[in-house]
Amino acid sequence: MESFFQSLDLNSYVPGAIAWATNILLAALILIIGLWISGKAYKAVYGIGKKYERLDDTLFRFFGSCVRYLILAFVFIAVLNRFGVETTSIVALIGAAGLAVGLALQGTMSNLAAGVMLLIFRPYKVDEFAEVAGTFGKVTEIDLFTTVLQTFDNQKIIIPNGEIWGKQITNHSFHEIRGVDMTFGVAYDEDIDKARAVINKVLAEHPHVLKDPAPFVEVSELNNSSVDFIVRPFCKGEHYFDIKFSVPELVKKALDEAKIEIPFPHRKVILVNESK
C-alpha cells in the first residue's frame, strides 16, 4: 500500500487543481459582478423612461432588456474564456445566427422599428381616439409590434406598427377643444338670416356647445337646389360625438318649426309637344 501512494506524484496534480479552483472562483466572481452590472444597467435605462413623462415606459423597458442581455452575453463569453474555451468561433456563430434570424424576420423587424418610432414620437397615446391605417377607434394598447384599437361597435382591431408608421395618422384627442363640421341646406326662397338665427339658437341652447370660441355659421355654397350653411360648433373632445349626432336632429326640428324648407334634390322636366 505504501508503495502505491509513493508511486503517485501528488505534486503534479496540485498546480492543476489550484488553477481549476482559481478559474472557478474567478468565473463565479465574473458572473456575480456581471449579473449585478446588468441589473444596474437595466434599472438605469428604465429609469430614464420613468423620469420623463413624455417618454414611454414600454420602449425603455425593451432598451433596458437589450442592454442587460448584451452585458450577460459578454459575461458568458468571459466565463468560458476562463476555462480555455475558444470564444472567437462562438462570437462568429452568434453573429451568423443573429443575421439569419434578422433575414427570416424582416417583416417583424420592420414592425419593431416602427413600434420604436411610435413610442419615441408618440403621435397618439393609450385612451386617445385616433385614425390609423384606415381604422378609427380608441387606442387601448401600444407595444413594440402592434397597436390595438377598440371600435365603436366594440371590436378589437390589432394593427401591425409597420402599417401605421410612415402613413397619415389622425389623433382626434390631441387638442382639448374641437370643432364639429356640419352642413345644412335651406331652399333658395327662404330668408337666410332667419335660417342662420334658428341654427344659432339651437347651438346656444345645447349644453355641450362652447360659447368661446363662438360657433361658426355661414353660407358655404350655392348648391343646385339649396343654399348650404357650414356649421362648426366647438366643444370639449369628450363631447365631440354627442354634438355630431345630436345637433343635426335638433336643427331639423327647429327649421321645421320655423317653417323653413329643407329642400331635396329635384329636376325640372319640360315636355315639348312636337305634333304642333
Rank of each mutant, 00 (worst) to 15 (best):
K236T: 01
A195P: 01
I262K: 03
A214D: 06
F241N: 09
P233Y: 11
D193G: 11
P263V: 11
K201S: 06
S220A: 06
D228S: 08
F229Q: 04
V202T: 06
A214S: 10
D256G: 04
P248D: 05
Y240S: 09
E190L: 13
I192C: 02
V209K: 01
A254G: 03
G237W: 14
V272M: 13
S246R: 05
P265V: 03
H206I: 10
E257Q: 15
K211V: 00
A258T: 14
I230D: 11
V227C: 06
L271H: 11
S226A: 10
N223Q: 14
A204L: 03
F264K: 11
Y240V: 15
K253S: 05
P213A: 10
K201P: 00
V209T: 09
P207W: 06
H239M: 14
S225L: 13
D212H: 15
H239L: 09
E261Q: 14
D242E: 15
C235F: 05
I260H: 02
F245I: 08
K201A: 08
D193N: 13
A254F: 01
E205Y: 06
E238K: 12
K194N: 13
K244R: 14
Y240K: 10
I270V: 04
V202W: 00
I199T: 01
I243T: 03
S220Y: 10
V198P: 12
I192E: 05
V251G: 12
I260C: 04
I262N: 00
K211Y: 01
F264S: 08
V227E: 02
L210V: 05
V202Q: 01
Y188E: 10
R232F: 02
K201L: 03
E221Y: 13
L210M: 06
N200S: 09
P263W: 02
H208S: 10
H206N: 11
A214G: 00
H239A: 12
N200I: 08
E218Q: 11
K194Q: 15
L222T: 08
C235W: 04
K244W: 07
D212N: 15
H239D: 14
